[in-house]
């Protein structure tokens, strides 16, 4: 009972516009509330510095998974369970499906939402590395209109984002993956379920004409924000496949240490996070090299 429910007001808007209106009119005073799985934890512990909540859970406008030839677009309130069970996501975005599967367990996955996962800005969240690897974009909407922000520039600092107080996340868009692709996801958590990541790593690569045409590496729990390992990506991207060998893997592992800034906390140590990030990157690259030895182009 540390969470002071009697001090709290909840507004449940009837529509997205209604929600945006109140955010605009009383800027910065309303805390959006989606599935509650992140927010209710500090609330119940009495450590959440908000007393006014904007209840978005009922806004069906923020639901639904839409598919176009170029993109797949996920409503902000898409839950992990929705992600897990979606056949196109399973086929084209297995990392995202994997990251949804390893977030909490079923009861959390039924309520936790993609937008909530990124809006809270936790560096240990499990879907951000996958969203980074897939080059996701986030739609932010306010009464003034909407804008698409590349997810890689969404987080600015620990629990800070580019969102304006009057904005809501409405959709998350992923470019469809086609061609000869490689997907890799690994969460090193404190246990196999109900775990917070100690290191989380997701990669997407595409081979074309004997080269690594695309390579994106998203990481969690290794810096104040989920991040793309750009130095490492640059080493791999554009490389000829036959040139990738143990030496390039060693170089990449070295480069990764430039990309990440892990810390000691109650769950792990900075040195463990560094070592394991590099090792898992090694695993990833070995798997990628193996995978690209034989082209597999999805129709």
């Amino acid at each position: 009972m540390k969470g002071q429910a009697p001090s709290c007001t909840v507004h449940t808007p009837a529509s997205l516009v209604g929600a945006l209106e109140i955010l605009f009119a009383e800027k910065g005073t309303w805390r959006p509330l989606a599935g509650g799985t992140d927010l209710m934890v500090p609330f119940a512990a009495g450590t959440l510095p908000f007393t006014r909540f904007l209840n978005l859970w009922g806004l069906d406008e923020l639901r639904g998974i839409e598919i176009s030839p170029e993109n797949i677009s996920l409503g902000a309130l898409t839950t992990y369970a929705d992600v897990r069970s979606h056949s196109l996501l399973r086929a084209e975005f297995p990392n995202l499906v994997q990251s949804a599967r390893v977030t909490g367990a079923m009861a959390i996955q039924n309520r936790g939402t993609l937008a909530g996962n990124i809006a809270n800005g936790s560096p240990a969240a499990d879907t951000p590395p996958s969203l980074l690897a897939y080059g996701a974009e986030v739609q932010l909407q306010s009464l003034a209109g909407s804008r698409w922000v590349p997810y890689e520039s969404f987080h600015t600092d620990y629990k800070q984002t580019v969102m304006l107080p009057e904005e809501l996340i409405t959709r998350i868009r992923l470019p469809r993956t086609t061609g000869d692709t490689f997907h890799f996801f690994r969460k090193v958590g404190t246990r196999k379920a109900q775990a917070i990541s100690k290191v989380c790593l997701a990669a997407y690569a595409r081979a074309e004409e004997g080269r690594v045409a695309e390579f994106r590496l998203g990481m969690g729990s290794v810096a104040p924000v989920p991040l793309r390992a750009l130095t490492t990506e640059m080493l791999i991207q554009g490389q000829r496949l036959e040139a990738l060998d143990d030496h390039s893997i060693a170089e990449a592992k070295q480069a990764l240490l430039e990309d990440i800034r892990p810390i000691d906390d109650i769950r792990s140590t900075a040195s463990y996070r560094r070592k394991v990030s590099a090792n898992v990157l090694g695993q990833l690259l070995e798997a990628m090299i193996e995978r690209f030895k034989r082209p597999q182009i999805r129709a």
Binding site: V10, T12, L33, G36, T37, M40, V41, A44, A45, F53, N55, W57, G58, A81, G104, A105, M106, A107, I108, N110, R111, Q194
Partner: peptide, 27 residues
């Protein structure tokens, strides 16, 4: 636990398994 970790508060809401400690009454 009061933080969605132990599942002792599991109930089924609208056909879905949820942790009732993480759901505000309004929802």
């Amino acid at each position: 636990c009061g933080e969605g970790e132990c599942g002792a508060c599991s109930v089924i809401l609208d056909g879905k398994l949820v942790n009732s400690c993480l759901i505000p009454a309004v929802q």
